[in-house]
Amino acid sequence: LKTAGVNTTDKEMEVLHLRNVSFEDAGEYTCLAGNSIGLSHHSAWLTVLEALEERPAVMTSPLYLEIIIYCTGAFLISCMVGSVIVYKMKSGTKKSDFHSQMAVHKLAKSIPLRRQVTVSADSSASMNSGVLLVRPSRLSSSGTPMLAGVSEYELPEDPRWELPRDRLVLGKPLGEGCFGQVVLAEAIGLDKDKPNRVTKVAVKMLKSDATEKDLSDLISEMEMMKMIGKHKNIINLLGACTQDGPLYVIVEYASKGNLREYLQARRPPGLEYCYNPSHNPEEQLSSKDLVSCAYQVARGMEYLASKKCIHRDLAARNVLVTEDNVMKIADFGLARDIHHIDYYKKTTNGRLPVKWMAPEALFDRIYTHQSDVWSFGVLLWEIFTLGGSPYPGVPVEELFKLLKEGHRMDKPSNCTNELYMMMRDCWHAVPSQRPTFKQLVEDLDRIVALTSNQEYLDLSMPLDQYSPSFPDTRSSTCSSGEDSVFSHEPLPEEPCLPRHPAQLANGGLKRR
């Protein structure tokens, strides 16, 4: 031991701790050491302190810390799992109470259905409401065949629209698609105040090879029609059969078919879209009749726009005509997947739907009320060519290029400059510069009032120099000039209409 001194630092001082000593042992101690050379000694003081209470040693090893962490984590996880189980049990009790009230408590799974309603004014964004509309049932219905791709499903009954099956008599087919079909039928007692009145209706139903998605689409269309409500110039929902059998959606019946066929059937002799010497046209149409058709469609679209509904496929083929020549817009409630459109795929009647699409819908897939206005301009062109085919002879690839360059279709022969300028306004490259349906209704209403009933179509000018029955994407082998976009001569082996020498072909294109 070194004694503290003047020249001794703290580091040089050493402390020796002795245990089991008493206060009597306190004092100075000297350590002597010697050898043959000499003797040396050092002294140190022993200080006795009071004994401290002994405390248990605390484990601070890493293993002990890990044990604490794992135990704490396990406890927290157990609490979370327990909370989830309690929540599930409570929510399951509430669901079972709800389904027992709906009398569908025996169901095993559900079809996820979404009601898609486009509400954005400047995009294709949609509001999806995840309302459960249908659930599968283990119960089988008697007297009705089961669908191959869709098991029997039981829908919640809506008393406002439900019609008993025994009050619906199915008739002949009116048309069909890939998985759905429409048949003519007679409904008894659609009007609650007149329970014995028989009404001719159209009934939409699924085919035998339909899938769950097809069922989902049909129900979504029905729900959309319920929500949009009734208007004179749209196909209205009349009722539905949802209980004890396949789903039947009952809508208004339009006896004169779609507008395109309606116009073609009323072309003057010699100007029909397909040469037929025995062709006997229906009643002749006046200019006022054509303007009235456009006015009614505009009114229907104005109503749909007021309900925040974007059609996305407005064309003469999707406008139906009733016995009283009332125009009714159809298929506005269809669920369309705008992100998976095949631009080169034709519709069932051979038309390319892209020829009715606005550039922003075609290139950027942006659907708005103003893109519907563009389609309405093409529909106007169809009306005043009596069912002509837009951009005849123009392949899709060429159409993309022409639209980007600002080309537009030429004025039809039997169309006034004012109406043609309306078409051109609908085809404005900037969507915000196109008229609204409200403005179109006002303009067409004024034109109808000024147009005489006696103004019949000028038969001295050809209505349509093209054969719409030909595929639109076909290139002409005998077109006049180098560019078949601006002219389209008859093919030698097929009868077509004579070309008027002083008139540019109706399907020609102009640059805006």
Score class of each variant (00 low, 15 high):
residue 166 D to H: 03
residue 166 D to E: 05
residue 166 D to A: 15
residue 166 D to N: 14
residue 167 R to K: 10
residue 167 R to S: 08
residue 168 L to P: 14
residue 169 V to A: 10
residue 171 G to S: 14
residue 171 G to R: 12
residue 172 K to E: 13
residue 174 L to V: 12
residue 175 G to E: 03
residue 177 G to A: 02
residue 179 F to L: 03
residue 179 F to I: 03
residue 180 G to R: 04
residue 181 Q to P: 12
residue 181 Q to R: 04
residue 182 V to A: 08
residue 183 V to M: 14
residue 184 L to F: 12
residue 184 L to M: 12
residue 185 A to P: 01
residue 186 E to A: 04
residue 188 I to M: 12
residue 188 I to V: 05
residue 188 I to F: 13
residue 189 G to A: 11
residue 189 G to R: 03
residue 191 D to G: 06
residue 191 D to N: 06
residue 191 D to E: 05
residue 192 K to R: 14
residue 193 D to Y: 06
residue 193 D to E: 04
residue 194 K to Q: 05
residue 194 K to R: 11
residue 196 N to H: 06
residue 196 N to D: 06
residue 196 N to I: 14
residue 198 V to A: 06
residue 198 V to E: 07
residue 199 T to P: 09
residue 201 V to A: 10
residue 202 A to V: 03
residue 204 K to N: 06
residue 205 M to L: 10
residue 205 M to V: 01
residue 205 M to T: 04
residue 206 L to S: 04
residue 207 K to Q: 04
residue 207 K to N: 07
residue 208 S to W: 03
residue 209 D to E: 08
residue 209 D to H: 04
residue 209 D to N: 08
residue 210 A to G: 11
residue 212 E to V: 05
residue 213 K to E: 14
residue 213 K to N: 10
residue 213 K to Q: 09
residue 213 K to T: 12
residue 214 D to Y: 08
residue 214 D to N: 05
residue 214 D to A: 08
residue 216 S to L: 09
residue 219 I to M: 08
residue 222 M to I: 14
residue 223 E to G: 04
residue 224 M to K: 01
residue 225 M to L: 14
residue 226 K to R: 10
residue 227 M to T: 12
residue 227 M to I: 07
residue 228 I to V: 05
residue 229 G to A: 15
residue 230 K to T: 05
residue 230 K to Q: 12
residue 231 H to N: 04
residue 232 K to E: 14
residue 237 L to Q: 13
residue 237 L to V: 09
residue 237 L to M: 10
residue 238 L to M: 09
residue 238 L to P: 05
residue 239 G to V: 04
residue 239 G to R: 07
residue 240 A to T: 03
residue 241 C to G: 07
residue 241 C to Y: 13
residue 244 D to G: 13
residue 245 G to R: 05
residue 245 G to V: 04
residue 245 G to D: 05
residue 246 P to R: 07
residue 246 P to H: 14
residue 247 L to S: 07
residue 247 L to V: 07
residue 248 Y to C: 12
residue 249 V to D: 00
residue 249 V to F: 03
residue 250 I to V: 07
residue 250 I to S: 03
residue 250 I to M: 07
residue 251 V to A: 15
residue 251 V to M: 15
residue 251 V to L: 15
residue 254 A to G: 02
residue 254 A to S: 09
residue 254 A to D: 02
residue 255 S to Y: 08
residue 256 K to E: 08
residue 262 Y to H: 06
residue 263 L to V: 09
residue 263 L to M: 06
residue 264 Q to L: 09
residue 264 Q to K: 07
residue 265 A to V: 15
residue 265 A to T: 11
residue 265 A to S: 04
residue 265 A to P: 06
residue 265 A to G: 10
residue 266 R to W: 04
residue 266 R to Q: 04
residue 268 P to S: 03
residue 268 P to R: 06
residue 269 P to R: 14
residue 271 L to R: 06
residue 271 L to V: 06
residue 272 E to A: 06
residue 273 Y to H: 12
residue 273 Y to S: 04
residue 273 Y to C: 13
residue 273 Y to N: 04
residue 274 C to R: 03
residue 274 C to S: 09
residue 275 Y to D: 08
residue 275 Y to H: 13
residue 279 H to P: 05
residue 280 N to K: 05
residue 280 N to Y: 05
residue 281 P to Q: 09
residue 282 E to D: 09
residue 282 E to K: 08
residue 282 E to V: 06
residue 282 E to G: 06
residue 284 Q to E: 04
residue 286 S to Y: 12
residue 287 S to T: 06
residue 289 D to V: 07
residue 289 D to A: 10
residue 292 S to Y: 13
residue 292 S to F: 11
residue 294 A to P: 01
residue 294 A to T: 03
residue 295 Y to N: 12
residue 296 Q to P: 00
residue 298 A to G: 05
residue 300 G to S: 03
residue 300 G to A: 12
residue 300 G to R: 01
residue 301 M to K: 01
residue 301 M to V: 08
residue 302 E to V: 06
residue 303 Y to C: 13
residue 303 Y to S: 13
residue 305 A to S: 15
residue 305 A to G: 06
residue 307 K to Q: 11
residue 307 K to R: 03
residue 307 K to N: 11
residue 308 K to N: 07
residue 309 C to Y: 15
residue 309 C to W: 15
residue 310 I to T: 00
residue 311 H to D: 00
residue 311 H to Y: 00
residue 313 D to N: 01
residue 315 A to G: 00
residue 315 A to V: 00
residue 315 A to S: 02
residue 315 A to E: 00
residue 318 N to H: 00
residue 319 V to I: 10
residue 321 V to E: 02
residue 322 T to I: 14
residue 322 T to R: 06
residue 324 D to A: 10
residue 324 D to N: 12
residue 324 D to G: 09
residue 325 N to D: 10
residue 326 V to M: 08
residue 326 V to E: 06
residue 328 K to R: 15
residue 329 I to R: 15
residue 331 D to V: 01
residue 331 D to N: 02
residue 332 F to V: 02
residue 332 F to Y: 10
residue 332 F to C: 02
residue 333 G to S: 00
residue 333 G to V: 03
residue 334 L to F: 02
residue 335 A to G: 01
residue 336 R to L: 04
residue 337 D to E: 09
residue 338 I to S: 06
residue 339 H to R: 13
residue 339 H to P: 04
residue 341 I to F: 12
residue 342 D to E: 10
residue 344 Y to C: 00
residue 344 Y to H: 12
residue 345 K to R: 13
residue 346 K to T: 15
residue 348 T to N: 06
residue 348 T to S: 10
residue 349 N to K: 15
residue 349 N to I: 07
residue 349 N to T: 04
residue 350 G to C: 02
residue 350 G to V: 02
residue 352 L to Q: 02
residue 355 K to M: 13
residue 356 W to G: 01
residue 357 M to R: 04
residue 357 M to L: 06
residue 358 A to P: 04
residue 359 P to A: 03
residue 359 P to H: 02
residue 360 E to D: 03
residue 360 E to Q: 01
residue 361 A to G: 11
residue 363 F to C: 05
residue 364 D to G: 13
residue 365 R to W: 15
residue 366 I to F: 08
residue 367 Y to N: 09
residue 367 Y to F: 06
residue 369 H to Q: 08
residue 370 Q to R: 09
residue 370 Q to L: 14
residue 371 S to G: 03
residue 375 S to A: 07
residue 377 G to W: 06
residue 379 L to F: 12
residue 379 L to H: 11
residue 383 I to S: 05
residue 384 F to I: 11
residue 386 L to V: 12
residue 388 G to R: 04
residue 388 G to A: 08
residue 389 S to Y: 08
residue 389 S to T: 06
residue 390 P to T: 03
residue 391 Y to N: 05
residue 392 P to H: 00
residue 393 G to R: 02
residue 394 V to M: 03
residue 395 P to A: 13
residue 395 P to S: 03
residue 396 V to L: 07
residue 396 V to G: 10
residue 397 E to Q: 13
residue 398 E to K: 12
residue 399 L to P: 14
residue 400 F to S: 09
residue 402 L to Q: 11
residue 403 L to V: 13
residue 403 L to M: 08
residue 403 L to R: 02
residue 405 E to D: 10
residue 406 G to S: 07
residue 407 H to Y: 05
residue 408 R to C: 00
residue 409 M to V: 00
residue 410 D to G: 09
residue 410 D to H: 13
residue 411 K to T: 12
residue 411 K to E: 02
residue 412 P to R: 00
residue 412 P to L: 01
residue 412 P to T: 00
residue 413 S to R: 09
residue 414 N to Y: 12
residue 415 C to S: 12
residue 416 T to P: 13
residue 417 N to K: 10
residue 417 N to Y: 13
residue 418 E to D: 12
residue 420 Y to D: 09
residue 420 Y to N: 05
residue 420 Y to H: 04
residue 421 M to T: 12
residue 421 M to V: 08
residue 422 M to L: 12
residue 423 M to K: 00
residue 423 M to I: 06
residue 424 R to G: 11
residue 425 D to N: 08
residue 425 D to Y: 10
residue 426 C to R: 00
residue 426 C to G: 00
residue 426 C to S: 00
residue 428 H to P: 00
residue 428 H to N: 09
residue 429 A to S: 08
residue 430 V to E: 09
residue 430 V to M: 08
residue 431 P to L: 00
residue 434 R to K: 00
residue 434 R to T: 00
residue 434 R to S: 00
residue 435 P to A: 01
residue 435 P to S: 02
residue 436 T to A: 08
residue 438 K to R: 14
residue 438 K to E: 10
residue 439 Q to R: 11
residue 440 L to R: 00
residue 441 V to L: 08
residue 441 V to M: 08
residue 442 E to G: 07
residue 442 E to A: 09
residue 442 E to V: 09
residue 444 L to P: 01
residue 445 D to E: 08
residue 445 D to G: 12
residue 448 V to L: 07
residue 448 V to M: 10
residue 449 A to T: 12
residue 449 A to P: 09
residue 450 L to V: 12
residue 452 S to T: 09
residue 453 N to H: 06
residue 453 N to Y: 11
residue 454 Q to K: 10
residue 455 E to D: 07
residue 456 Y to D: 12
residue 456 Y to N: 14
residue 456 Y to H: 14
residue 461 M to T: 11
residue 462 P to L: 11
residue 463 L to R: 10
residue 463 L to M: 08
residue 465 Q to R: 11
residue 466 Y to F: 11
residue 466 Y to C: 08
residue 467 S to T: 13
residue 467 S to P: 13
residue 468 P to H: 11
residue 468 P to T: 14
residue 469 S to C: 10
residue 475 S to T: 11
residue 475 S to G: 13
residue 476 S to C: 13
residue 477 T to A: 12
residue 477 T to P: 10
residue 478 C to S: 11
residue 478 C to W: 04
residue 478 C to Y: 07
residue 478 C to G: 15
residue 479 S to P: 15
residue 479 S to A: 15
residue 479 S to C: 15
residue 481 G to R: 15
residue 482 E to A: 13
residue 482 E to G: 12
residue 483 D to E: 15
residue 483 D to G: 15
residue 483 D to V: 15
residue 484 S to T: 14
residue 484 S to P: 15
residue 484 S to Y: 15
residue 485 V to D: 15
